[in-house]
Amino acid sequence: MNIFRLTGDLSHLAAIIILLLKIWKTRSCAGISGKSQVLFALVFTTRYLDLLTSFISLYNTTMKIIYIGCAYATVYLIYMKFKATYDGNHDTFRVEFLVVPVGGLAFLVNHDFSPLEILWTFSIYLESVAILPQLFMISKTGEAETITTHYLFFLGLYRALYLINWIWRFYFEGFFDMIAIVAGVVQTILYCDFFYLYVTKGESGSNKINPA
């Protein structure tokens, strides 16, 4: 565990909590893509099946349970509790265009052709593109609330920190996971445009981000 990995995990946790609290406090999930949140719940579920097969550390287990729990809580708030505020008309990204190719790729390119490993690979690939419905929704409506942009910022920061973590681990531990790294780079690139807007628009005092 290095500082980049730890702050990356905490940044990821911050993003998840920020979104959950925003929906809870405002009693509304307007502007939030339920589809992205379902994909993230699917990502955590398929990746953390190893909770049942191997124990790594108390930290690892605890964080996995928190991530999964928060992901399902978010999906519950969007599709059940605050369903009336869900902006489904603007959440029109076709997720099958992500899930099907990603599923196929996980079968073809993996470390080991076993059920758990294929599901892990699927989750890695899917995570890299799971935010697309959310970004698509923002580009469609032309704006995002400040809190939503903070959520995206921490998600992007988590990815960037993980990249540094992998460079660190390569030099100091000889650790190298090609699948995680390639998917991580793709995922980070998807956030770059958003990062630029976040920084430039954020400083202008405007509380809206227009990605167009």
Partner: peptide, 10 residues
């Protein structure tokens, strides 16, 4: 399976 990778990251 034997030699299966353990993924220690989140």
């Amino acid at each position: 399976a034997e030699g299966e990778a353990v993924h220690d990251e989140l």
